[in-house]
Simulated scan of single mutants.
Amino acid sequence: MDRMLEMVSINGGLVLGPDVALQNAQVTMSYLQGAEQMYVNGVLATVDVSFLADVHIQAFEDCSTSGRYFCFNQIVNSDAETVKLARLLSPLISIPSRHDFQESEIYAERIRNKKLRKLIEGNAY
């Protein structure tokens, strides 16, 4: 602010798309280090690579954009979504069996992307 710059930060969830996870295995595995706790807390977020690219373009083109944006398409918060995610990330991670799921309280979405939705809706995505 003291330099009169407007900064934009787009913080994406786990980036998914055709072979994205396999081509960026180290980054993907780093993100997944806390996946179990993120899942339990309702903050395991994923974002499609095409959507993330479009958001970056919109943020660049809209001169009024500033600040931090949380960018995700989905919050993984069910057993079925967890298995689907594991299939997308195979062979990086193994597909969990039914007995691997612990009985734990799963919270509804704990993070919001309301600010991002305003950016997208304002630009008629």
Rank of each mutant, 00 (worst) to 15 (best):
V55E: 00
V40R: 14
S30Y: 08
V40N: 09
S66L: 12
S78N: 05
Q37E: 14
Q26A: 15
V49K: 00
L22A: 15
Q33V: 10
Q26G: 13
A80C: 04
M38I: 00
S64N: 11
Y39I: 01
I75S: 01
E61M: 09
V76T: 15
S50R: 15
Q23Y: 13
F51M: 06
A80I: 00
I57M: 10
T65S: 15
H56L: 00
Q58W: 02
C63H: 03
C71M: 05
G34R: 05
Y31D: 15
F72R: 14
V55A: 08
G34C: 07
T65D: 12
Y39A: 02
H56K: 08
G34N: 08
F70I: 14
S64V: 09
A25W: 04
T46A: 03
S64W: 08
V47G: 07
C71R: 02
A80P: 04
N77I: 06
S64P: 05
H56A: 05
F70K: 08
D62M: 09
E36N: 14
M38G: 00
A80D: 14
G34D: 09
S50F: 01
R68P: 05
A59V: 03
L32I: 05
A80W: 05
I75H: 06
N73P: 13
V47F: 03
F70R: 02
Q23W: 11
A35Q: 11
H56F: 12
D48S: 00
N24D: 12
G67L: 06
F70H: 13
V49I: 01
V43A: 09
N73A: 09
N24Y: 12
T65C: 15
H56Y: 13
V55G: 01
A59C: 01
G34Y: 03
Y39H: 02
F60L: 15
A35N: 13
H56T: 09
N41Y: 09
N41F: 10
Q33G: 07
M29K: 12
T28H: 06
Q74A: 05
I57A: 12
A45H: 15
L52W: 08
L32T: 14
H56G: 07
T65H: 12
T82C: 14
A59S: 12
I75Y: 02
V76L: 10
H56R: 02
L52A: 08
V27K: 08
S66D: 12
D62C: 07
Y69W: 07
Y69Q: 02
A59G: 01
Y69A: 08
Q26V: 15
V43W: 06
V55R: 07
C71P: 04
S66W: 06
Y69K: 04
E36P: 11
Q37S: 10
N73M: 10
I57V: 12
V49Y: 01
S30G: 14
Y31S: 07
F72W: 07
S78Y: 07
F70G: 03
F70D: 08
D79F: 04
